[in-house]
């Protein structure tokens, strides 16, 4: 089974999160994820992108330069791995309410948030019921 990788690089602006959400929906569909799982992935990718976009906005507010976020999707058999990262130097701050963590954790199988590196890694496997 070969891995397939898709990369998306978009301006770090909220309106481009939609593109990442659409992309993950399309890829999840290729792997025959169910409607509920596709919704989960859209939520997860939207959330991860928002985190990075916000972090980026804080980082670039002083310099005035518009940053980008990179989203890498890796398809392996019945599994989808998504990595979202910002420009070098982007740091994800600890969140007070932790709502994002709660959401991410609920909709994918595995979440790794590397705050210092400004990177979020998500992994979700297709449920066996439709296979």
């Amino acid at each position: 089974m070969h891995d397939h990788q898709v990369r998306l690089s978009v301006p770090a602006l909220p309106q481009f999160a939609r593109l990442a959400r659409l992309t993950v929906a399309g890829l999840a569909n290729r792997l025959e994820f169910t409607y509920d799982e596709v919704e989960d992935l859209r939520i997860a990718v939207g959330e991860a992108c928002s985190l990075l976009i916000e972090a980026q906005a804080e980082t670039t507010a002083s310099s005035g330069a518009g940053g980008r976020i990179d989203v890498t999707f890796t398809l392996t058999g019945d599994e989808l791995v998504i990595e979202v990262s910002g420009e070098a130097g982007t740091v994800l701050r600890e969140q007070g309410e932790g709502l994002s963590d709660l959401i991410l954790d609920a909709v994918v199988d595995d979440v790794q948030v590397d705050r210092a590196e400004g990177r979020v890694r998500l992994r979700k496997r297709r449920s066996p019921e439709t296979a």
Binding site: P14, Q15, A17, R18, R21, L22, A25, G26, N29, Y35, V38, E39, R42, G46, S50, E54
Partner: peptide
């Protein structure tokens, strides 16, 4: 399938600027 996916995203289409 593309139309279905697009329709799913339509729920969100114009709220993306105010996610939080």
């Amino acid at each position: 399938e593309e139309e279905v996916l697009e329709a799913m995203e339509a729920a969100q289409a114009y709220r993306s600027t105010s996610i939080d």
